[in-house]
Design a binder for these strands. Structure first.
Length: 207
DNA sequence: ATTTAGATCCTCT
DNA sequence: GAGGATCTAAATG
């Protein structure tokens, strides 16, 4: 078995606004059911700060089978399905029953690239490396992350976890992407990314 | 480089 | 029945 040094629960036991920038540079690792290792360094994140956040699935304390994982212990994975075809991967944080989470929006792929390419392949079209994981839907496809991993405990799982990676370069901060009319929550700067990393999502590069 | 529309389906109203 | 924490291809400047 490969070395596994998952970030501990204490690391995730803080508000999303604190965790989101702290996750930059961390390595997300998935060992697929076929035993293939897929990994990438986190280079872009967004904070969804809880029941007051109009843009969050947990706004107003809403609770349903879809977002149940947001209410679980810190360090739990929240994976949801949207737009009829995409999954998004989040890390639940704060405390159990306090539904905050950090959306991982982009990775710098660094292990299992050939498999990622095949997972991202559409009609035989080969993609550039930066096209593998430069967006929340893209990275889930490349990392083979689906709804079946929703609720995974990232602190205990040997299938999906986050390790300390490298120290990030300069970090930029800006408004979150893709929100509807969420008032002040749309403009608050709750997105963080590595300034000099070419693997952030396209929207992210326009700071 | 930027804009547009279309895909597509689960969840909640 | 509407809309969504998105992505792609095609059209346009």
């Amino acid at each position: 078995m490969p070395e596994r040094a998952a970030l501990p629960r204490e690391f995730f036991a803080r508000g999303a606004q604190s965790l989101a920038p702290a996750l930059l540079g961390g390595r997300l690792i998935h060992v697929t059911p076929r035993g293939e290792r897929l990994a990438g360094v986190i280079v872009e994140t967004e904070a969804y700060v809880g029941i007051e956040d109009r843009a969050s699935h947990s706004f107003g304390g809403r609770r349903s089978p879809r977002n149940e994982s947001m209410y679980a212990r810190p360090g739990t994975a929240y994976v949801y399905f949207t737009y009829g075809m995409h999954h998004c991967f989040n890390v639940v944080c704060a405390g159990e029953g306090d539904p905050q989470a950090v959306l991982v929006r982009a990775l710098e792929p660094d292990e299992g690239l050939p498999i990622m390419r095949s997972l991202r392949e559409v009609r035989g079209t080969v993609r550039s490396d930066r096209d593998l994981t430069s967006g929340p839907g893209k990275l889930c496809q490349a990392m083979a992350i689906g709804r079946e991993l929703d609720g995974t405990d990232l602190c205990e799982s040997s299938v999906l976890w986050i390790e300390p990676g490298r120290s990030p370069g300069p970090i930029c901060q800006g408004p979150r992407i893709g929100l509807g009319a969420a008032g002040m929550w749309k403009t608050r700067r709750l997105r963080w990314w590595e300034r000099d990393c070419p693997f952030v999502s396209t929207a992210g590069r326009r700071g």
